[in-house]
Amino acid sequence: MNRQPLRLAILEATRILERAGVASPRTDAELIAAHVLGVERGRLPLVPLVDPTVIDAIGQFVTQRAKRVPLQHLIGWAAMGDITVDVGAGVFVPRPETELLLEWGLKLIDGRKFPVVVDLCTGSGVLALAVAHARPDAVVYAVDIDSNALAWARHNAEARIAAGDTAIRLYSGDIADGSMFAELDGLVDLVLCNPPYVPEGTPVPPEVSDHDPAHAVFAPEGGLAVIRYAIDAAARLLRRGGGLAIEHDDTHGTAVPELVRARRVLTDVQDHPDLTGRPRFVTALRG
């Protein structure tokens, strides 16, 4: 069997994905190759030649990715912080830009012993689980209204426990309910939220429109409806000096900070850009 250069296979995969309109063709090609080979992406240069069966397997994955099936659905996982979680049909795929929101939250609670953290609209559970991994002493609550998302979150939570992480406290609930987590009012150090926030009717890539649950992507009131509930929840849950971080649409760089400032108990309101420089998440402290 004639072995073939992996480098050429990745170049061809990149060309195919680029023609298909994939946003990060080289990255996706390398991640597919790494998945097929069972190695970390950074170790691909150490694999100069591969068997034709590997080339064929890479080609099959690339064909599906070129049809705009999300990469994370193909490889079965998404990363956040120092962990990965399983994802697939029925749950929102975590995005790299949310890493910045996570970093802000972890920095805020650095040095606080046994911090209480609440993750609203938890989806796959990725933010809550990333916090629990980084801070084993934290008491982490997570909530979502969708049963499919909660099934994924429960699966991922069990996997993290098996890997040695502390358990999170996972709940089914609606963040519009003013009594949700009432026993935590004034006791929470950090509230994180990556809610549905895309304004209804906004064109989105096929990976989103065809595969992410619509209710996890779009929100009424110009994309602000769920964000309003998250702000209300944070205002009552946070203790003095506690912090809030909410991800938002790139068209919300003015609107969401204004909504947060309207709650007088929330101070030091700041908006932050994502990896491409677009407005992406707002933070505030409980005064």
Rank of each mutant, 00 (worst) to 15 (best):
S209Y: 02
L120M: 02
A157L: 14
E18T: 12
A29I: 04
H155E: 02
D144M: 00
M180Q: 03
L37T: 05
L129Y: 11
A233M: 04
H272Y: 05
E158C: 11
F218G: 05
S172D: 00
A130F: 08
A57S: 13
A167C: 03
A34Y: 03
P279S: 03
A29G: 04
Y229H: 14
T84C: 15
G59W: 05
D271Y: 00
H133K: 15
P5R: 09
G277D: 03
P257K: 02
L46G: 06
I55H: 12
L120W: 00
P213G: 10
D165P: 02
L108W: 15
R95F: 04
L150E: 00
M180S: 01
A163T: 05
K107H: 12
A245L: 01
P257E: 03
L106D: 09
A66W: 02
G242E: 00
T254G: 12
R280E: 11
T122W: 04
T84K: 15
V87P: 13
D137Y: 05
A284K: 05
S172G: 00
E158D: 15
L224P: 00
R280S: 12
G59R: 06
D165N: 07
G201Q: 00
A230I: 00
D82N: 11
L8R: 06
A225I: 00
L285V: 14
R43Y: 12
P136C: 14
V54P: 07
T267L: 05
S24H: 13
